[in-house]
């Protein structure tokens, strides 16, 4: 009862490629529809890229955690908390640089908390991060309960906003500092996951923990680091969000966890771990943002976005279920 031997030396198994990357297909379809069918699509694309960069940070962080087979539902409020910290420290020290560092440190701490509870104590990541989410949410809301929490000094506020608006290439509509930094991070992580020993360990931890342990890999440590990285990335997102709005907003974290998970799953990151790359996250990100943009342009209410993402999620699951059955 021998399985067919797969010799991928010469030809590429196109069918398999397609099935593995159904998100690419969806993205392609969306782009075609957008470019040829929707008015102003190309014109608004740069702003899509800029907005995507923020959510991209959250999704990338979450993606890292998901590859190891875990999850983090507190991403939204880690970002929110970081935004609050940014403003707080900015008010206290007047230095944006210190504020940013403080925010990133706060994010790392959040990551340490999550990582500790999940990997060291062993609480299920789902409920562990729902619980920590309350802590982050509470802290965030405590400061922004009035609606937003802005720098006291107007000049500080301007400094803050300048970060987001800063255009690396003058005149370019989408080459902002934010986009640049996110792109760099994205490429960096792509590189780390593929070319470093740690990156490989991340995949092994998600694919078969026992095999990893047996081979001498410290899987708990590997997973812990993904949580810390996620925390830092969320914090960076929070800094940019604060910058964009000139302060920390009240409802910033709301619904972001669902969004981030949707991006990852639709993009092709598996819940069970061990599979998926930053490219998948990117595809999921663009799928979601392009759909939002298209819906906007066609003057459809925002609620249809939720509807679409929900349907897409389930569709992706079903496609997955039936294609993996065929393999077996």
């Amino acid at each position: 009862m021998e399985k067919k031997q797969v010799t991928a030396l010469g030809g590429v198994n196109y069918r398999k490629l397609l099935v593995d990357n159904n998100s690419a297909v969806i993205l392609l379809i969306l782009l075609v529809v957008g470019v040829f069918g929707i008015d102003k699509f190309i014109k608004t694309f740069p702003s899509v890229v800029v907005q995507a960069s923020l959510y991209g940070l959250l999704a990338v962080g979450l993606g890292l955690v998901m590859i190891t087979g875990n999850i983090d539902l507190s991403v939204g409020y880690q970002a929110g908390l970081a935004a609050v910290v940014t403003v707080m420290v900015l008010n206290a020290t007047g230095s944006l640089a210190i504020a940013v560092v403080a925010a990133l440190a706060a994010g790392a701490l959040c990551g340490v908390l999550n990582g500790f509870v999940v990997t060291q104590i062993g609480v299920s990541p789902l409920i562990a991060t729902i619980a920590t989410n309350y802590i982050f949410k509470g802290l965030t809301y405590a400061k922004t309960s009035t609606g937003s929490y802005s720098p006291t000094d107007n000049s500080l506020k301007d400094t803050l906003k300048a970060l987001y608006d800063f255009k690396v290439v003058d005149g370019s509509k989408f080459m902002t500092l934010t986009v640049l930094i996110v792109a760099v991070i994205f490429i960096l992580l792509l590189f780390v996951l593929r070319k470093t020993r740690y990156g490989n360990s991340v995949y092994i931890t998600g694919d078969n923990v026992e095999a990893g342990e047996y081979a001498g890999i410290h899987t708990k440590r590997v997973a812990m680091i993904t949580y810390i990285l996620c925390g830092i990335l969320c914090a960076l997102a929070g800094v940019f969000m604060a910058s964009r709005s000139g302060g920390a907003q009240y409802t910033q974290g709301d619904g972001m966890d669902v969004l981030a998970v949707s991006i990852c799953v639709i993009g092709g990151i598996k819940m069970t771990g061990g599979k998926g790359t930053m490219v998948h996250v990117l595809m999921g990100l663009f799928i979601m943002r392009i759909i939002t943009n298209i819906l906007n342009l066609v003057r459809v209410e925002a609620t249809y976005m939720d509807l679409t993402s929900g349907i897409l999620l389930i569709a992706v699951l079903i496609i997955d279920r039936f294609t993996s059955r065929k393999k077996a």
Binding site: V261, M271, T303, Y304, D306, L307, S309, L313, I314
Partner: peptide, 18 residues
């Protein structure tokens, strides 16, 4: 259909909300 309950109900949640 034997789908993952977490993602599935995340999806239906969005749908019902809409």
């Amino acid at each position: 259909l034997q789908l993952n309950s977490f993602i599935t109900t995340l999806g239906t949640g969005s749908i019902y909300g809409s």
